[in-house]
Amino acid sequence: MSELLTKSRARNVFYGGSIFFVVVFVALTAQSHRHIVDKATAGMPLTEEVRLGKHVWERHSCINCHTLHGEGAYFAPEVGNVMTRWGAQDDPELAYEILDGWMKAQPSGIEGRRQMPHFEITEEEMRALAEFLRWADQTDTQNWPPNDAG
C-alpha cells in the first residue's frame, strides 16, 4: 500500500474528490432552493405579515426553547405543526385568538412546571406570529412529524 498510495497521490485524491463533491452539493442545493420556493412552501403566499411574524419569532429567540420542524432546543413543544394541533390551520382568526390567549397566560407560575416567559407583543405582531406559524405548518416536510403530538 505504501508504494501505491504515496503522500502526493493521497493529497491529489483529497483535492480532486473534494472539488467533485462540492460541485455536486452546490448543484443539488440550487435544485433544492427551487423546490422549496416552487413546491414545498408554495401552499400559502409569503406575505409581509408572515415575514413580520418570522421577525417576531426571531426577536424573542423562541428557537432556544421550542423546536420548529424538529430543530431548536428540546425544552418546549414542537411548533411546526402547532396550528394543526390546535385545529386552527385553516382559520386565521382562531389561530390568532388561541395564540394570543396562550401567550397572555404566561408565565403560569405553577410550581414544578416549565415556565414560558412573558413577551411584550403588540396585536399586529401577535397576528403576524400566528400567520408565520400557519405558514410554517403548510410546508411539505415529507410528512414529518409522524403525528399531531409533534
Partner: peptide, 9 residues
C-alpha cells in the same frame, strides 16, 4: 430530511 427540502435527500 424534514425541513421542506426534496425527498431525495
Amino acid at each position: 430530511y424534514w425541513i421542506g427540502t426534496p425527498g431525495y435527500w
